[in-house]
């Protein structure tokens, strides 16, 4: 057992945390999967390496899975930390309820107990841009409006509306999603090209300025549709219009500042 596994086993044994969410070996050697550790024995199964790509922050707003009392530990990747911080900024999870932990290259466990420590850790561990994603966005940007429309029609015609993209996203936490509203029926609920496009437009608009770019939506899509390009592109647009700084509470499109350039503020 690694030293950090032992540390986490001890935390579970002495009641520092009531539950730890992390990763374990998956069905094939190529993959890992989320693991809920309720006791010290289960902590032996925890792993952390480059295969750990699920965004565990998705579980932090699922009350049915979390013990009512006690702190909950999360063995987190940088992407999980970014989403957890965003959830705190949107008042979805209280600071202190979760003990986020990062595992360093030497197996050193770093505890990140509050939003400020998360901010510092994330700033010190910037994630490289994915060149494949950038290249795909450039390719689509270079298309004519008609070609682009044809590209997304062809792509999204395949969508079966399983909503794995929604289910895997830590920031898709609404208890009643717009696709489930039927008075009025904002979005046609069956899977065909136009309703599929309507769904993705709504999804990415709701993500604008909030998406942390983890790619969980794309990783979850059973059909491997490149829907993360939409959120990534919208993040680029938000950065261009509003800068890359994000407010400490709320988010770009739901907050205002007296310094905003729009004249209706004044």
């Amino acid at each position: 057992m690694n030293n950090w596994n032992k540390q986490i086993a001890d935390m579970l044994a002495d009641g520092t945390v009531a539950l730890v969410i992390g990763y374990e070996e998956g069905s094939t050697p190529q993959k890992t999967r989320p693991l809920f550790c309720h006791d010290a024995v289960a902590a032996e199964r925890l792993v952390m390496d480059g295969r750990c790509t699920h965004n565990l922050a998705v579980y932090l707003t699922k009350k049915e899975l979390l013990p009512a009392e006690g702190r909950i530990g999360v063995v987190a990747t940088v992407n999980v930390l970014k989403s957890a911080l965003q959830l705190m900024q949107e008042n979805q999870i209280p600071e202190g309820r979760f003990l986020l932990m990062a595992v360093g290259p030497e197996g050193k466990l770093t505890e990140l107990p509050d939003a400020e420590s998360l901010r510092q850790y994330i700033a010190a561990h910037p994630l490289p841009d994915n060149p494949e994603v950038a290249a795909l966005i450039e390719k689509i940007d270079a298309m004519s409006r008609e070609e682009r429309w044809a590209y997304w029609q062809e792509c999204l015609s395949k969508c079966v509306k399983c909503y794995a993209c929604r289910a895997a996203c830590p920031l898709c936490y609404c208890t009643r999603c717009i696709v489930e509203d039927n008075r009025p029926q904002w979005i046609l609920p069956w899977a065909s090209t136009l309703p599929n496009i309507e769904w993705q437009i709504n999804r990415v608009m709701h993500m604008a300025g909030r998406c942390t770019g983890c790619g969980a939506c794309y990783a979850a899509c059973p059909l491997h549709l490149p829907i993360h390009l939409l959120t990534k592109k919208l993040t680029q647009e938000i950065n261009r219009e509003f800068g890359t700084e994000r407010p400490a509470k709320g988010n770009v499109l739901s907050t205002f500042s007296p310094d905003d350039k729009e004249n209706f503020i004044h």
Partner: peptide, 25 residues
């Protein structure tokens, strides 16, 4: 089921899952 996200991927790729909804256009 702790890690299950509650999406419909398993049902939609399944050769025997037959549940359907009736909707109005």
């Amino acid at each position: 089921s702790e890690r299950c996200l509650g999406c419909g991927a398993c049902a939609f790729v399944c050769p025997t899952c037959a549940c359907f909804d009736i909707q109005e256009d």
